[in-house]
Design a protein around this nucleic acid. Sequence first.
DNA 1: ATCTTTGATATGTCATACATAATACTAATA
DNA 2: TATTAGTATTATGTATGACATATCAAAGAT
Lengths: 237, 237
Amino acid sequence: MSLTFFKSEMMSIDTSSLVDKVEESLVALLRERKLGVGDVIPKEIELAELLGVSRTVIREALTRLRLMGLIESKKRKGSVITSPDLFGMMSKSMNPHILDQDTLKEIFELRLVLEIGIADLLFHRVTKEDIDELKQIVADEPPVTQYHIFNIDYEVAFHSKLYEITNNQTLKKFQKMLLPVFDYVHHSGLLKKQSLLRTFVSHKDLVDILENGNPEKFRNGMRDHLENHFARIFDFS
Amino acid sequence: MSLTFFKSEMMSIDTSSLVDKVEESLVALLRERKLGVGDVIPKEIELAELLGVSRTVIREALTRLRLMGLIESKKRKGSVITSPDLFGMMSKSMNPHILDQDTLKEIFELRLVLEIGIADLLFHRVTKEDIDELKQIVADEPPVTQYHIFNIDYEVAFHSKLYEITNNQTLKKFQKMLLPVFDYVHHSGLLKKQSLLRTFVSHKDLVDILENGNPEKFRNGMRDHLENHFARIFDFS
DNA sequence: ATCTTTGATATGTCATACATAATACTAATA
DNA sequence: TATTAGTATTATGTATGACATATCAAAGAT
């Protein structure tokens, strides 16, 4: 037998634990039985018998599903299937103090990408009320000084509202999760200091574009509005 | 005592389970002790004693951390802290068959947002080799017919390469995770059928823009390239 | 008929024992 | 001496049984 044979054999050895397999089995089971949101799944002991493992393993597997937001467990009632919260879990590990620097910077970039990319969604879904609300937010902002020192609260309020307008909950949750990281990176020494070269497209300008312009203009406006951040990214390396 | 008193009492009752608390305690513990990637954490029994709970509870809590990608457990060695894989967990629940329709559509949108938003990253980081590779991919594609029936494989190859050029691993992983969902939504009856109105900006056009144009042109080009998808989204509701 | 109590039930927690795999240590062999 | 084979140790993985607790439902009291 050749060495490569052994290697391929080695590679194919199942390194997953029992719980891993049970987890898969459970997901498969749910799909098989076409169980949807709201349906209760068999109780732990039954599952243990069905799959031929101990309740401990079942419980660990169920814990994972619960963690994924796939099920919710209630005493006496059992576990019911719920619509998975994609970001519920993720947000727990989205801790700036734990993430490494590279990832942090990448998340910073990700936010910029999103803000520019949502232009079309915005224009298609924005309402008169949204425009009014944005105007109100802008009106409440302190006057922009020459040095463009922005208040993080107003910054968040404005951009959060934009995500809201997209009417895309997934996107909204995603942004909410990214926020603390963005804030952290912004204030940490991870990126080059702000250059403050010139005055950029303001929030007010963006609202104007959203009201009277088109997606293309908005993308360019947003790109310019974020120039400060982009400059910090690109200057770093 | 008034009713509202009772109500507020009720509300403030901690509904979280022991495991929930232990989980928080553990994360706090790690941060407190300033444990970084690679450090081993105390063994399960020690943690059980330290926090005054059974090993079962500790294990469930550790399972969660492991699931978050915060730690890795090895027999005999114990558990060591790892750099959390933000999307490792998420990708498990990113199962088209499990997600509800609204979320699926939102993810579909998310992909479009990303592709348009990455223009600046692309232009800042693209190399001559990348351009060549893209040209090669395009050259291998079958001729685009009038009806714009695209082959999903070539589609994926091209767009994946774009994400690669951004040199943003987080973004890349994110895209990889979104792919199956996008594919699923594309083929499912969730969205309106393709309208096939006209010929759009092709992959080749995009490469040209990336080579000779600027971010703004690329964003517009990509927007046009994706017009088909956007039309399906916006026509739905 | 309504409220209270009680009991049944399924998950939550605990304790213990054993299995398994990876490492460290020891001893045998060249 | 160095290398290998075997053995012991150790921490996680799995199994089992017991009890705690919360919730629902039915029986019972008002």
